[in-house]
Structure formats: structure tokens, C-alpha cells
Design a binder for these strands. Structure first.
Lengths: 144, 144
DNA sequence: TGACGATGGTCAGCTTATCTGACGAGACTG
DNA sequence: CAGTCTCGTCAGATAAGCTGACCATCGTCA
């Protein structure tokens, strides 16, 4: 590891820390059957449901892998697959009750962690950090 | 995905982008047998060599997994295991010639990507971003 | 309007990455 | 120097990923 880590690596530490905290909190709250890979797929499901292909693209895995993970999420009661009214081939992966409950836990932890980080950095730096990262997303996230 | 992604998720996009660019450049340069998991271990090898246990801790995998990946890196000629002069049980995972060549490629890409990002954000914002992330590391990276 | 290429998803089979548990050899500590 | 801890490996199981092949439906354009 270099003396002065590059920006990408510096981004990695907070990301991994948050992911770990959320997963731990989920496990603590009784959602202890959700794995990291499942969570990464679930985190990309929109409020009105998301197609499998889209989940796969955003998570950067093949649609087969995404399907495999959604199968598990479905069996565990986190999501359901509903027919897409606008396309007979497609189905929308939507949160079920249990999934919504898990999302609520995740959101709470995210907010708590963010508050800790803001306290550590100071309001103004945290605001600037968020803004820079949002702008960086324009050139690093192929999905808008 | 929320309308306003949390800080952790915002950190994820640049991280993944950089990782992808580095891996692609390595493949292009003839290091096309290195996988993402191997790269994540290799990225943590220090100049004077690093113990397997330490690699495992920093990459947050078990030492068995780290050993498995180092085996492959060794077979591919990227690293060697040398006895640790200070501890008869331990061995130091060190870069071999091929590994050093790959690191040089990775460093070049990292610098190029960072330059792109700095151009996108502006000098001052990029500097502030690096500083905030470095401070955030204090509370998100258990390995300082 | 109907043939055809593109798209959404699944099935099958394989490889890679990861874990838990057990263990032996060497180091450390009282 | 006995007991205990640490470093690494072996063995076996499981999770997570890939490629290739395939079918049904959509959309387009001749």
C-alpha cells in the first residue's frame, strides 16, 4: 500500500465501513440470512420495482448471477417478482413486506453512520465531500 | 436506490471505477491472468513484503482465502514467499519481477485516472476531497 | 403484416472465491 | 520449560460468479 493512497482507494474505506455496518445491523435485527452479494442486488431495487437486467447491469454482474441472487431473496421473503405491465417478457423485482422492513433498518444505520462521519469532519467539510462525490459520480457511474 | 444516495454509496462509484480501469489496463498490458480478488490482495503487499495474516486482515478475508489467492499469484509469477528473518513461522509475501512490472502499470493508471478526476472537479475541490477522505479513513479503516 | 433482429429471462454446467474447523510448527511468557 | 498464543496450511463445504445455449416477446421496417 502506497504512502499516499490514491483517491479510489481512499473511497474504498468508507464504502466498506458502511457496507459492513449495515450488514451487521441487519443481522442484529433478525435479517441474518441476507448475504453481502444479496444486499448489493437488493440495494438497487427501486420503489416501483426494477427489472432483473437492470439490477444486473448496475451491480455489474451477469443477469444469471443476478437471477441467482434474486431467487434467494425471493425464497427468504425479501422480494417478489411481478409481471411488468409494459412488457410481457419482463418482470419487476419488488420489495415484499420483509424487504421493506430490512430497508428501513438499513436506512436508519446509513443515517447514523453519516451523522458520525459528519461529526468527525465538521458540517462544512461533510457538505463539500458530498458535493464532490456527487460530481465525481458523473464520470464514474455509467448509470447516470 | 435512494434519490440522494448516502455517502458510503457515493464513495463506491469512484472506487469501482478505478478498480475496473486498473484491471482493464493490466489485462491490456499482458497481465491478463490477474483476477479482481488476486489484485485486491496484491494491492496490499508492501515494498519489503507482507505477511499472509496481515494481507488477510487488511483485505478482510480469512487467511485461508488469502493463502489461496497468494498461491495463484505465486504460480503466475507475480509474487514470491520468502522466509521472515524475524520469525521462523512466518513468511513474507514479496513482489517478484512480474509483480513489480504490474504494479508500475497500475500506478500509471491510478495517476491518470486521478488526473481526470481532478480536471473534472477542479484543483481545489480535488484537494479538499482527498483531505476529507483521508480524515474519514481515521474512523473507517481499522488498519490506519 | 409479418419476418427478423434485439431484448428479458431462464436452464445447465463449470470455475473462482470464500468460509469453518482442525492442526502442526515455531514463538513468547511466566 | 510448560503452557499458550500466533503463523500458516490442509481438508471439505458453500456461495458467488462466469460462458454458452435457449425460448418467448417486443419493436421495426420492408
Amino acid at each position: 500500500m502506497s504512502v499516499q493512497p490514491n483517491l479510489g482507494l481512499l473511497c474504498f474505506f468508507p464504502y466498506r465501513a458502511l457496507e459492513g455496518r449495515v450488514l451487521a445491523a441487519l443481522a442484529e435485527a433478525g435479517f441474518d440470512d441476507m448475504t453481502l452479494a444479496q444486499g448489493r442486488i437488493a440495494a438497487r431495487i427501486g420503489e416501483r420495482g426494477t427489472r432483473l437486467t437492470e439490477l444486473a447491469e448496475q451491480a455489474q454482474v451477469t443477469k444469471q448471477t443476478a437471477g441467482f441472487l434474486v431467487d434467494q431473496l425471493e425464497r427468504a421473503g425479501y422480494v417478489r417478482r411481478l409481471p411488468d405491465p409494459t412488457d410481457g417478457r419482463a418482470r419487476l423485482v419488488c420489495f415484499a413486506e420483509r424487504g421493506r422492513a430490512a430497508v428501513a433498518v438499513a436506512r436508519r444505520v446509513e443515517a447514523a453512520v453519516e451523522a458520525e462521519w459528519t461529526a468527525h469532519l465538521g458540517e462544512e467539510s461533510a457538505r463539500a465531500l458530498r458535493e464532490s462525490l456527487t460530481r465525481l459520480r458523473e464520470v464514474t457511474d455509467p448509470w447516470r
